[in-house]
């Protein structure tokens, strides 16, 4: 049980940190959203690994509830970010077009 905990927790930590750094550095919006989502999953993996109590035993339910909350929050935030990005593209395109018309 300890081995599985360590293995999955370490994997989670790795994915969390790399996702976070990529999310800070990435320059495309979609890339950033993906990176932040990946990082979030890494963190959830860490939490669920720490909740794991072995094959024959039920896991600690509290982290599971927390992660479920986290998953829903992540999709909500991604949706909002994508919607803002879409509006941004729209605005930029229309301003480009206006510049094109005036010149």
């Amino acid at each position: 049980m300890e081995q599985a905990q360590l293995m999955f927790a370490a994997t989670g930590a790795l994915i969390f940190v790399f996702g976070l750094v990529a999310g800070l550095r990435d320059d495309s919006l979609l890339g950033r959203i993906i990176a932040i989502n990946i990082s979030g999953v890494g963190l959830f993996l860490l939490l669920v690994a720490l909740a794991y109590r072995g094959l024959c035993q039920a896991a600690d339910p509290i982290p599971h509830a927390l992660v479920l909350t986290g998953i829903v929050v992540a999709v909500a935030a991604s949706g909002l970010a994508i919607a803002i990005g879409r509006k941004l593209d729209e605005l930029r395109n229309s301003s480009h077009r206006r510049e094109g018309d005036s010149s």
Binding site: F8, I33, V41, A58, H64, I71, V72, V75, G85
Partner: peptide
């Protein structure tokens, strides 16, 4: 990891909805 609730939610939300959202936003 004995978290079937999360497996259900992840398949539907994490991979399904977020994936569809990202694909549509490409």
């Amino acid at each position: 990891l004995q978290a079937p609730d999360l497996a259900l939610a992840e398949a539907a939300i994490g991979a399904g909805l977020t994936g569809a959202l990202l694909l549509a936003a490409l």
